[in-house]
Design a protein around this nucleic acid. Sequence first.
DNA 1: CGAATAGGTAATTGAATGATTACTAAGGTC
DNA 2: GACCTTAGTAATCATTCAATTACCTATTCG
Lengths: 200, 200
Amino acid sequence: MRTEAEPIPRMRAEDRRELVLEAATGVFGEFGYFGATTDQIAKAAGVSQPYVVRMFGTKEQLFLDVLQRALDRLLETFRGVLAQGAGEDLGLRMGTAYVELLTDRGLLLSLMHGFAMGSDPVIGAVTRDGFLQVYKFLREEAGFTPEQVRMFIANGMLVNTLVGLRMSDEYDTNPLAKECLCVALPEKLELVLALRESQR
Amino acid sequence: MRTEAEPIPRMRAEDRRELVLEAATGVFGEFGYFGATTDQIAKAAGVSQPYVVRMFGTKEQLFLDVLQRALDRLLETFRGVLAQGAGEDLGLRMGTAYVELLTDRGLLLSLMHGFAMGSDPVIGAVTRDGFLQVYKFLREEAGFTPEQVRMFIANGMLVNTLVGLRMSDEYDTNPLAKECLCVALPEKLELVLALRESQR
DNA sequence: CGAATAGGTAATTGAATGATTACTAAGGTC
DNA sequence: GACCTTAGTAATCATTCAATTACCTATTCG
């Protein structure tokens, strides 16, 4: 009920931009590129819809920036894990780090929505390239064999799917859902379950 | 240029319905639920847009019917493989059968788009249930261990992702894409490559 | 045959939504 | 303290799209 002149918060464009990117990541992650509206994103970021559009030019460019940011965070995270040593358990540690990225709401789901848009001439090209960047990292920097990469990414896609499906909503009510989550998220299960609270 | 009275093809509603479902599967698979329009689907099926809407009531119901049809085919396919014997190589045979479903254009991709819509109250509930039906089949009918199911489904989701990304478009131009496809699709690689021709 | 039924379409509408335009106010700087 | 740049909004436009309405015309069947 905004009673008195709360000093309307003005930010430097750079900070506001990051704020909008975060909000957009969440909304795109939940509804996908076509399902999300610039107005939803604007409201989530606490700014007006025209401002969102003007900051990024088009909705498509905003989505591309969201994807780029997500990819950057993903690789940055993996590089961080790698920097802590490349032992036997590197795959496990990176897997755990991957699941931890779920706390950055919508980040992995936005990527997943991007992956499903391969036939879009612009977004498809960018997401293909992004996927291959990750593949290249795992092969050349992390030193995985093709087979190790396959298993690692496959499990990542399974995690994405279960999160996208909100399978955790059924954790308490459906034993199969519980088993499914337990086997797919060896550790960090509690993290996924915790996310249930924060959504909706 | 329709010169003379080609006898305008009239079908029994049942056949037409299946035709529209096929077309819708392709369009939803390519563009997703929000990205696809009923007009695109109508054109792909060779009927008018209002007729598509009237046949299914709403776009949402059409998508639900597409998902149900896809799930039915998937389980039917798996049951067919299982009926041919449950040896050591059951997982491999079912994996091959799964990839062969890619010839049913958009079927697996429509499911994947559905999986990304877990937060939709209607579609989410249906896709969660569908996913769990498959999980249940693999555990209880196919006799997989939880770990076997995890690996099987994870690989399926990887296949979906690579197809959704149209990674095969880069097969000839990017060695990493080639390696990636080769390792993820042990057999039936030629099938995925053949699909490149038929699209666009 | 004649009429009912089934398989459709053309025209239109109303709402949603991305984008544009025109404006306003804050705050640093000289 | 005028000034100009930066951060933002309100109003509105143009399109797209799902849905509705009002028809039309083959085919079936008594």
